[in-house]
Every structure is written in structure tokens, then in C-alpha cells.
Design a binder for these strands. Structure first.
Lengths: 189, 189
DNA sequence: CGGTTTCGCTACGACTAGTATCGATACCGA
DNA sequence: TCGGTATCGATACTAGTCGTAGCGAAACCG
């Protein structure tokens, strides 16, 4: 309603997109540990303090970056089997993007022993997909969480072990396996 | 043959087991990042320099610790379905042990951008199981690597997201799913 | 033009990986 | 018993990292 009058003072420069891009690029180039906030700021062309004014920690920055990168799941159709396949391919494409898998692993590492960060991770990154998938796939919460573990875990483990994204044929196998497991058969309503 | 005469000089004190135990305990208590080599050494009751004389880096130490913790796969029988189930439960038990999942995530993070460490990880940790499973399950290398990705990735993702090991019923679902996927059906030869 | 807020910049404190050094110590063989 | 050798513990050190503090300059509004 009230179009929230602009607050007084100098407005924030809109550099979130540039920061996210620089974050993934830097992580891709140097890995999570050596992708320092200093370097990310320099790559963006802003000061490190500006980053810390927006995100409370490096882990929170990278998590926000992942949330931004993944974005909303494409809307599904009326075929649950195709929706499931589309969701898996969606995850596979995102995780194959440069820096994403390394960012994921780094946030997981930081989240252990930092319950606050784990909360952010679970709430901001996983919850949206959990809710949408319960609806669109017509599965219980337990089944959907299992589904997410299998898909994301498998794709990340492949990237972590080999440094390369999972090949197409293995993604196809992952899709077929989960279609069978979840009783969502292709070619049948 | 020649029982390799003991080298001259003061022999190394045999503290590997204690170091591994202290490593996992410290990682479990503080997380990978705050589990410093200083603290691990103090928990073991030895000097930090002694640790660096045996392992070239923190990542190598933790990898060796994981190799030690996982150990060899229990020998299989003649029933491939049961062997597959046993292998999955073996992984689930190990990953549920305190500190193991956090150690895994930390090593993955360090291994990105450190090809040397990734080589150690792949060679020392994954290769033995790969070879044994190709033999005992009678599957192609590609299928076995896919199998490992699914099992370890899924279990680690659950631990990373929730901080809790996967519940028994979900492990059962994982087993059933992979028995179907790999064409290794229970109750049938 | 004054008020308010963010910006870039520099400096700083606390902590960590990994290295260097050195006297003390443990084992072996003569 | 004693010399040779290699490890051990302890300390100090370098280089790098996260995150914070302080300050003048800049941007926007009324």
C-alpha cells in the first residue's frame, strides 16, 4: 500500500548482483578458503567494509549468493514425472556452474559449529524448494527431504571428488532411479 | 624377506591412533575450521611440530584420519543384494560417527583449489572401495562410481543440512532404491 | 544548504597454517 | 659405557585471514 517512502540519507548502491558474480568467480578461481572477502570486494570494485555492512559474515554472503544463483524452481506442468526430471536437471545445471559446488562445500563446512549459519542455510536455501516440491510432486515432507538429499548430495559429491560436473548419462540414471523410487513413472499418468 | 632392519636413530613414537582420535573428537566439538592443529596436538598430548613431521598439511591429516576410520569394507558373501545393503549400512554407520561428516566436508572444501589434496582424497579414500565394489558387486566402474556418489553424497548432505545422521528408515529407502537401480534384487539370486 | 546515511580507506586485534631452530631424549651398535 | 643418529617438545616466527573501528568524502532529500 503506502509505497514505503524512501528512507533519508545516501541510498545503498545496488551492487548485490556484481558482488554475487564476483563471489562465485573468485571462489571458482581460488577455492572457498582463499576466496577472501578482500579479494571478492576488490573484484567487485568496492570496499570490504561495504560487504560487511550487508552480510554479517562470509558464510552468510556465500549463502545469499547461492540463494540468488539457484533462484526459483521453474513452474511444473501436469506430468509429475517430467516435473521431477526438470527439477533434477535444474539442480544439475546450477551445481555445474563455476564456483557453485565449491561455495556449497565451504558453506557446509562453516555451518558445522555455527548453528546460526546452518539455520540460514536450511531456511533460505532448502525450505523454498521443500515447500514447492511437496506441492508439485505430491509427496510427503520426509520423501521430499530424502529426494533433495539424494539429488544435491550426489551431484555435490561428484563435483567434490572429481572437480567435474556429473555427465549427462549419469544425470539420466539419477532421474530414472528417483522416478522409480518415488513411484512417479514416466509415460504413465 | 629381509625383515627391513630398523633405521638408526630415535624411533617414531606410535601415536597415530591417538592423533586420529583427537582429530575427530576436536572436529566434532569445534567444527573443521576451529579444530586447529594446535588444539589437536594439545588434545593428543604432543607437540604441533610432531604432527607436521608426519602429515604435510591439515587436509592430509584429516584425510588419513578418514581412511583410518572407514577402514576396509567387510567381506561380502555370495548374495550381491545383501552385499550392497551391507556396504551402504557400513557407510551410514561411519558417517554417523562424531566428527566424520564435518571432517569430510572440510576436506572437500580444502581439496578444491588444492589438486594435490584431491589426489590423496581420491586415491587413498575412494579407490580402495571402488576396486572392491567392482569385484564384489559385479558392476562397471561407471556404475560403481555412481553408486558411491549416491550413497556418500546423500548421507553427507543429510548430515550437513541437519547435523543429524540419516534415520534408519531413510537408509532402508536408500538401500531399496539402489538395489532396484543396480539390478541387484533382494530375495532373488 | 543542512541533515542523514552510506561510501572508500586505513588501521587494527585476534586467530590460524605452516616453518625454523635448538636443546633434550630414545634407541642402536661397538 | 659411549658415540651416532633421528625424533621429540618448546618456542618463536612469517604470512595470511576474518571481522571491526574510525574518519572524511560523497549522495540523496527537503
Amino acid at each position: 500500500m503506502a509505497p514505503s517512502t524512501r528512507p533519508p540519507g545516501r541510498p545503498r548502491s545496488s551492487v548485490d548482483a556484481e558482488v554475487f558474480a564476483a563471489t562465485l568467480a573468485t571462489i571458482h578461481e581460488l577455492g572457498y578458503t582463499r576466496a577472501t572477502v578482500d579479494r571478492i570486494a576488490a573484484a567487485t570494485g568496492i570496499a570490504k567494509t561495504t560487504i560487511y555492512r550487508r552480510w554479517p559474515s562470509k558464510g552468510a554472503l556465500v549463502t545469499a549468493c547461492l540463494v540468488d544463483t539457484f533462484g526459483p524452481l521453474p513452474p511444473g506442468g501436469r506430468d509429475r514425472a517430467q516435473d521431477l526430471a526438470a527439477a533434477i536437471r535444474f539442480g544439475a545445471r546450477r551445481i555445474a556452474e563455476p564456483g557453485v559446488a565449491a561455495a556449497f562445500a565451504g558453506v557446509f563446512t562453516d555451518a558445522i559449529g555455527d548453528p546460526e549459519l546452518r539455520e540460514i542455510l536450511s531456511t533460505q536455501l532448502q525450505d523454498p524448494y521443500r515447500k514447492v516440491l511437496i506441492e508439485s510432486l505430491g509427496l510427503s515432507e520426509q520423501r521430499v527431504l530424502f529426494f533433495i538429499d539424494v539429488v544435491i548430495g550426489t551431484l555435490l559429491h561428484r563435483m567434490g571428488m572429481t572437480g567435474e560436473p556429473m555427465v549427462e548419462s549419469d544425470v539420466d540414471a539419477l532421474i530414472a532411479m528417483l522416478q522409480r523410487e518415488l513411484g512417479v513413472r514416466p509415460w504413465l499418468p
